[in-house]
Every structure is written in C-alpha cells, then in structure tokens.
Computed example of a mutant assay.
Amino acid sequence: MKSDSMFCVYSLVVLLLLLLQSSCVESFILKLERNETFPSPTNVFELGFVQPNVFISRWYLGIWLAQDPKRTCLWVANRDNALTTPMGTLTFSNNDLVLIGQGNKTVWSANLTGGGDVNSQMSFDNPTDTLLPNMRLGYDPKTGSRKVLKPWKNQTDPSSGYLSLRFEDDFYSAVVAISLGHPLSAKNWSIVWNGYSFGDMPPILEIENETLLVMTNYLGNHSRLTLEANQEESIGVYTWDLKSRVSKASWSLSKDDCHGYLRDVAGNYRTCGSYSFCSTTNKAPMCSCIQGFHQKTEPSGGCVRSRAFNCNDSKYLLLKNMKLPERHFDQYQLDGFETCKQFCHSDCACTAFALVEKLNNSYCVYWTGELDDMQKYSGFGGQQLYVRVAAKDLG
C-alpha cells in the first residue's frame, strides 16, 4: 500500500474530488472497507467510509482533513444513495469514476470531463455542502454543469436538503449576488457583491468569469465555506486551527440579525418594504425609513416620501455599507462618480444610483421606481448607495 504506484492512485482519487489534477493512471480499481482510509500524498486529506448516525447502518464515502479528529466531512460522494454496509469498490475507467456497492450495484458515479485520459484537465462538478479553496460555484459552460451547494438534511443525514446556495449569474446584470433559499420560495436571501466581497462576508470568493465564482485561500489553504445543516438556514466560513486541530468559525450568516428578523417560521423571506432598510441598533434588528421618508400607514409596510418631490430640485443622500436594492433598471460602463450622478440626474424617473465593480470594470447602476430589499451592514461590507431626495430633506 505504500508503493509509488498506489500513492498515485490515492492522489488521483482524493485530488479529483478536490478539483485538482493528476497524471498517474488511466484506470484503476480500489477496494474500500470499514476503518480503512486513504491519505493524500501530503497527508492533508483522507478518504474513507463514514457513518454519521451510529444507530443506522448507512455508510457514505467522504473526505475530511486528516488531522481532524471529528472527521468533519468536506465532501460526500453517495450522499443520496447510502451503502448498507461499509464495503465497496471505487473504479475509474473511460473518464468515469464509479462507486459500486453490494450486488455490483452502482451507488454513485461522476464523469470527469476534459478529454480521453487522466492527463487531461479534470474537474469534479458536484460539490455537496462545502466549498474549499479552488472549488467553484455557478455555471460551467465547458461542462454544462451548474455547481450549487446543498446542506445535509440534518446533522446525521448527509442527503441533499431542500435549501441551496447558488451564484446568480445574470450575464446582463452588474449587480451580482449569491442567493440562499428554497427553489419554490417567492423570496430568497441574497448577498450582493461589492467589488471586494459578498456583503460583509470575508473576501473568500472571487468572480472568475461571468458565470463562475471561485473560492480563494484568503483565510488559509484549509479554510472552507459550508451551507449549514440547521434550522437557521445559515452559511458558515471556517478556518483551520492547526495547533488545536479544530475548525473555527470566522463568519456566519446566523450572526446577521437581519437574516433572522426577516425570515418567517416557514423559511420565507420578506423585506422591510419600499424606501426602508433593515439595520441593527443595539443588537435589535429593525426596519428604518430612509431620511426624507416616513412610515406608511398600510399594513404592507414600507415608507413614502415626506414631502412632494420635484426631480429638478433634488439632491443625493449617501447611504454607506448598504445591500443594494433589487430590480435595478439598467447599468452602463461609465467612468467616475460625477458622470454616474449626472446620468441619473438627467432621468427624472431615476431614484438612486451606485457605482459597482465587476470583473475589473466599473458600472453605473441606477434604479427607477421604489427601492426595496435593502440592508445596512454594521461596519464592514456593502456598498455606497446614493438615493435621490428632495433638496430640503438634506437641509
């Protein structure tokens, strides 16, 4: 088991699952049994069977950090098709990676794209609930696959939950976001790109192209982003503490009070209404009207202008650290604040504008009509939003 050829096989298996490359062999057959693990060449990761619920004989092929005593799974192959015994065979041939269980039954398979042999560039197109550095989220036009994250159903069941985290890859939109929610929900929770990071999340994700995000090693080579298996529908960012051999939370959506405040018991999201934003004051989330607006009397919520508005006698109120409103009208590749401001000012229907960065280009984004679905981050994150108000509202 310690021969160079066998370590090539281990390298192929583990690194394929981590979206890396190998050039060892063109085919192999690997027998897997209980309590047998296969380390990567640098002993960073291990592959083997896991039994999340010790009271039920359901076994899964997973990978974890070799130094993690808890064996926290970073990826699970057969998450939706468990083995009933901890025995199986992993084969690779003709670009197909296949896990075979009892009765010669295929319980999981993946096609490794990119060519006719292992020397070709290969990518594992199905992340489960976790992103590691160099893993991607979004649509890959080369393979035709869409990479999304789905949480475990619960702490002991790795099968796919109904929630998903995906990259909203609208080619024509300068306002890019990652979206968290159920496929059939009328309203999902979105985290908007500000040219540096998504919301107030650490800058661990980068826009690789118009349809793909890639996770970086900003927080270390063994950092991870995980879609949590809990009732809070949360995203967690973790770093690996080598000394204590534990993953430590660096950021969590569950700590965003607005996320919990605007989510009902059924898991649906609402907004504060038009011209209103969620903010945290003394750790108590609340909806606040933009300066120059007051609360509506209707139960639907939201705010209305406090005085008659004349677009020829208007100014722009700067709101910092903002999650940008939904449904922007259009965007143009313009240079500088003043150009963007004049562009908005020339259109009487323009209610707000912002400068956003996407793929090293600066875009002037402007809104017409009511502004909705906004949030003010406390401190780090968000963007500058310029809201058009009556000149008298600014004094």
Rank of each mutant, 00 (worst) to 15 (best):
F277H: 08
V356N: 02
D335F: 13
V76P: 02
A110D: 07
V365E: 05
F171A: 15
E232N: 13
P52W: 03
S252A: 13
N360P: 01
L213N: 04
R58E: 15
K341W: 07
R388I: 08
R34Y: 10
V13Q: 00
K70H: 08
G114V: 09
M1K: 08
S40A: 08
H345F: 07
L30Y: 06
K70G: 00
V148E: 15
R305W: 03
G336V: 04
L15G: 01
S254K: 13
F380M: 09
Y316E: 01
Y196P: 00
G336S: 05
V107K: 05
L30N: 07
F92S: 04
V54D: 10
R146C: 08
K187I: 10
L16S: 15
T113R: 12
S3I: 06
R245H: 12
C24S: 14
Y162I: 13
P183E: 12
N43P: 03
S120Y: 08
V98C: 08
F353T: 02
S57P: 10
N111E: 10
F28N: 04
T37A: 04
D200F: 03
S145V: 09
N81H: 12
T91D: 00
A352Y: 04
T211W: 01
W367E: 04
S378H: 06
W152A: 09
Q384D: 14
W240P: 09
F28L: 06
K376C: 08
T271P: 03
P158V: 04
N94K: 13
C311Y: 11
L355H: 02
S288P: 00
G181R: 02
S252T: 14
D393E: 11
L184F: 08
E232A: 14
S145E: 12
L165T: 11
V356Q: 03
V25A: 11
N95Q: 14
T37C: 05
V9L: 07
T297V: 10
N126S: 15
Y363I: 02
M122V: 08
R270C: 08
W189K: 12
V246L: 14
W193M: 02
I100W: 07
T216K: 10
F293I: 01
C364Y: 03
L359G: 03
F49E: 07
D313E: 15
W193E: 03
C289E: 03
Q291Y: 09
C340N: 05
E36A: 09
C311H: 12
S234H: 02
Q383P: 00
L262Y: 04
L149Y: 05
L242M: 11
L30F: 06
